[in-house]
Nucleic acid binder design. Structure first.
Length: 900
DNA sequence: GCGGACTGCTTACCT
DNA sequence: ACAGGTAAGCAGTCCGCG
């Protein structure tokens, strides 16, 4: 539950390694298989990258899609030796279907069903209904086409079965339809027990999974960590272990970035219209191959920028030829990376080519969808979407990047900033533009290549866990990942996948009252801190508290509020909910085994420095991926967007969490340990002895089955009376600052600098005796900053005084109030800036009326100094309280002056 | 007409 | 489109005040 961790994937960038296959357990290279016949990318108009080999050596399943023309599932496989994508079409005759409670005889009465152009046939099947807790007989309605099940048009099975049957019989309760919302290719993955990201081969035209014989030892080792567990739990661990211990390919890929000429500087060109020419394109390959395509234009200087000597630079007289060459180069790479390519680069290229140069569809290797753009010959990954993902941002990259722009993410993760120019892009020379363009593509590529390709590995491992194509897993959120792996497990066990609304109707009600207005249920406990400076503080926390609770307490939508009378006494504390004592919940089993695998195997592995480099890299990726999933595994149950949405599951988890921590606090007190603070799953203990710590850990394990461990020791910690707000100096150095204003991103740099100086000074303090001296210097730091403000000596421009606040929604949606950053944004809009949700607004506080001004147009003379003094005060009050200091006294106001 | 108490909105953060 | 809890600042409203 801790957000920060040594396990995040951020690190100093390394040179990308050249290695065909990175295998955690050394695999035989698949060279014994015949090499697939080569098919050169021809320059003719034919786009037939569908290469359907009879035999294919071990290849990674990277995507599954539905081919509407052929009406079947089509797979993309990445062969790591030739580094090409091959296609395989389903040959098993698998078809789309949904399930319904109506028997065949009744369904046959429904004309619109049997007469539907997409209708294929009915089958009677047995399933286990997890909501009714019994075997049921249902009818499988099989169709020729997924659209017949539940497309966007009306008249599909999902709608007409209940509608028409109700009309026919006049019954109040319409018959149920299940699994009609599942995408066909996902259904195909579930039914065939496929795992995207894993190795398959094609043998005499059939798809065959490749068994990983060499990883057997590792699997055995892992399983031996779980001695006395139930068979089902062990099987689950084994499945996860197989998915996670498989080798990883080297992804041959290219980053694409385009530049478009535009008349208005502050506006992004519309990709639908694609009205302006594509003037420059940069391609940056994982083989470090650089290609720059430049359109010749009137009046543009060549410029004197030196481009890299190994870059292939081509000038084009005609934009059409440029596009042709670009498409040809793109086809050479199985994986295409962009930053915002779904919404800009790819649709722009497609529409430009179609609308202005009459390209045929098959001449463009781009497929434009509503929200996603694919490349027809391979896999397109839009890194904007991936890095935008909150879970990835926080848990995988430890919140290292704040806003999601190529520059911000690039700077934070790569130390490779964008190239800046004083003039607008339209005025750049050819070589200047090319340099800029190439750098963007380089950043894009490196975002996936740094730290030994962690990002590619992360996407791969997530797609294995979630059973989703790489394209989807990189674009969708954690609730989809968790939903899909749970759906898959339902199918594997022949369980009916319940409709979300049925779960909600049966067990949707919560029974606690949230502290925050508008929330569904009560959450975690935050203990009031003991204000002051405390030396020798041990921070103990529960390892994955919520996943542990889900595991130990058997939580899941099936087991909460179950049907059995005899379970009703098995109450969740502080709620009216009960938990089943007869059956095991699927979520409990799966999340539990995943948690145990992370704690028992992957976390220790990640600290093992004796492993070879590539293995070390892999063993940092996996715990991060697991962390992302586990951290969200509780929250999704409280989210309506989640397919198995069940608020009582989330509510019970939080309630048990409160119970666990409350008991632990009581235990500490009974041992005579002072509890200084605690939040959700952590306890700050004042100077406990090693024995006391041991007793706490042991007690927690035996009485609650929860693992309580020391996370860190503070030499001393500083608390005010505020929750979620403290500063801790670690034993051995380093400062943790949590929740303090001085660290928040929106605060002006001018104030942050003072806060940082304070931090540095506090870090020097070794003992209570050192504080006297430190306090003196802290007073000086604050007084200096204050005086400089008063004397208006902050620099040539008010840059350092700017607040930086994100625009949370489109400007027009601020209806109830107009916050200051919105006022600033409105001014910017007036002078021609395009303002959209997610933009970071920088503004300063001024004396004149709207009291704020965008920093771009503000000058030193108009700054409202007193406002900044007030901010300085509130920022430092958070610390000064505890140190026994007073801001106003520090800046030289006497008690009397303050009173007045 | 104005100021203080209050509520609600908004953002950033913690676990 | 994972959750709830907390801090802070500001916008807007209501009420009392001869």
């Amino acid at each position: 539950m801790t957000a920060q961790s040594q396990l995040d994937l951020f690190g100093i960038p390394e040179k990308q390694k050249k290695k065909p296959i990175v295998s955690p357990s050394p695999e035989k290279k698949p060279t014994e298989y015949p090499s697939p016949k080569k098919k050169a990318a021809s320059e003719t108009k034919t786009v037939d990258y569908h290469d359907f080999p009879e035999d294919l050596p071990p290849s990674y399943l990277v995507s599954v899609m539905y081919d509407g023309k052929k009406q079947l599932a089509s797979l993309k496989l990445y062969e790591p030796v030739s580094q090409k994508i091959y296609f395989w079409d389903d040959n098993t005759g698998h078809k789309p279907y949904c399930l319904t409670s109506l028997p065949i005889e009744e369904l046959e009465k429904l004309r619109r069903v049997t007469g539907h152009s997409g209708f294929d046939h009915f089958e009677t099947v047995e399933k286990f209904d997890p909501l009714l807790d019994k075997q049921v007989t249902v009818t499988k309605v099989v169709t020729k086409d997924p659209l017949a099940i539940g497309g966007r048009q009306s008249g599909c099975m999902r709608d007409i079965i209940p509608e028409d049957y109700q009309k026919l019989t006049g019954f109040e309760e319409p018959p149920k339809v299940w699994e009609s919302y599942i995408r066909y290719y996902q259904s195909y993955i579930y039914d065939n027990n496929l795992a995207p990201g894993m190795l398959y081969k094609i043998q005499k035209g059939n798809l065959v999974p490749v068994q990983q014989t060499a990883s057997k030892d590792t699997i055995e080792k892992i399983l031996s960590l779980f001695p006395d567990v139930e068979k089902e739990f062990l099987e689950s661990v084994e499945t996860w272990a197989r998915l996670l211990e498989s080798p990883v390919p080297d992804f041959r890929r290219v980053a694409l970035d385009i530049e478009v000429s535009s008349s208005i500087v502050t506006r992004v060109p519309d990709p639908q219209e694609a009205a302006h020419p594509v003037v420059c394109v940069a391609l940056f390959g994982s083989d470090r191959k650089k290609e720059i395509l430049i359109l010749k234009r009137d009046g543009i200087e060549n410029g004197d920028k030196k481009l890299p000597s190994d870059a292939i630079v081509t000038y084009f007289d005609s934009e059409k030829k440029l596009l042709q060459k670009l498409f040809e180069s793109l086809r050479d790479y199985p994986f295409v990376l962009t930053f915002n390519g779904d919404d800009f680069d790819l649709p722009y290229l497609y529409n430009r080519a179609r609308n202005h140069f009459s390209f045929e569809r098959n001449q463009i290797p781009i497929q434009v969808g509503r929200r996603v753009c694919r490349v027809s010959h391979g896999v397109h990954i839009d890194l904007y979407k991936f890095f935008f993902n909150r879970s990835i941002q926080i848990y995988a990259f430890g919140n290292k990047y704040r806003d999601i722009t190529l520059n911000a993410v690039g700077t934070a993760l790569l130390e490779l900033p964008k190239i800046e120019f004083e003039k607008p892009l339209s005025e750049l020379s050819y070589t200047e533009l090319a340099e800029y363009n190439l750098r963007d593509s380089e950043i894009t590529l490196d975002l996936t290549a740094f730290n030994d390709n962690v990002v590619m590995k992360l996407i791969l491992v997530l797609s294995r866990i979630a059973r989703m194509p790489l394209e989807d897993v990189s674009r969708q959120g954690v609730s989809r990942w968790i939903r899909n792996f749970l759906y898959h497990e339902h199918r594997q066990r022949n369980m009916l996948i319940p409709n979300s609304e049925d779960i909600l109707a049966l067990k949707g009600a919560t029974s606690t009252k949230a502290i925050i207005k508008g929330k569904k249920y009560k959450g975690a406990i935050v203990v009031d801190p003991v204000p002051g400076v405390h030396f020798d503080v041990a921070v103990m926390d529960f390892a994955s508290l919520y996943p542990s609770i889900i595991k130990v307490y058997n939580l899941g939508y099936q087991t909460l509020l179950c049907k059995h009378e005899e379970c009703k006494t098995n109450k969740v504390p502080e709620t009216s909910h009960w938990i089943c004592t007869k059956n095991k919940a699927l979520e409990s089993l799966l999340i539990g085994s995943l948690r145990d695998l992370r704690v028992k195997w992957y976390k220790p592995k990640s600290k093992d420095k004796t492993l070879p480099k590539d293995l070390q890299s892999w063993y940092t990726v996996i715990p991060s991926a697991l962390k992302v999933i586990l951290n969200a595994s509780y929250g999704v149950f409280g989210s309506p967007a989640f397919g198995l949405y069940c608020p009582p599951v989330a509510e019970a988890t939080a309630a048990i969490g409160r119970h666990v921590i409350t008991q632990t606090i009581e235990k500490a007190k009974s041992l005579g340990i002072e509890v200084l603070y605690g939040d959700t799953d952590s306890l700050f203990l004042k100077n406990p002895s090693p024995e006391q710590i041991e007793i706490m850990a042991e007690w927690s394990k035996t009485t609650m089955e929860m693992e309580l461990e020391v996370e860190k020791f503070y030499r001393y910690a500083v608390f005010s009376s505020r929750k979620k707000n403290y500063l801790g100096i670690l034993k051995g150095g380093g400062v943790d600052v949590k929740g303090m204003t001085g660290k928040k991103r929106h605060i002006p740099l001018y104030i942050k600098k003072a806060f940082y100086a304070l931090e540095e000074r506090l870090e020097q303090v070794q003992s209570p005796a050192d504080f006297d001296e430190a306090k003196k210097e802290i007073k000086k730091i604050i007084r200096d900053r204050y005086l400089r403000l008063k004397q208006r000596r902050w620099g040539d421009s008010p840059e350092e005084l700017a607040f930086h606040v994100v625009l949370g929604k489109p400007l027009k949606d601020y209806k109830k109030t107009t916050p200051q950053h919105v006022k600033a944004a409105l001014i910017l809009k007036k002078i021609g800036y395009e303002m959209k949700a997610g933009d970071l607004i920088s503004f300063v506080k001024v004396l004149k009326d709207p009291r704020v001004k965008p920093v771009q147009i503000a000058s030193n003379s108009e700054i409202d100094v007193d406002k900044y003094v007030a901010y300085l005060q509130s920022t430092f009050d958070q610390i000064l309280d505890a140190l026994g200091l007073d801001f106003e006294e520090i800046i030289g106001l006497t008690k009397l002056e303050r009173f007045m």
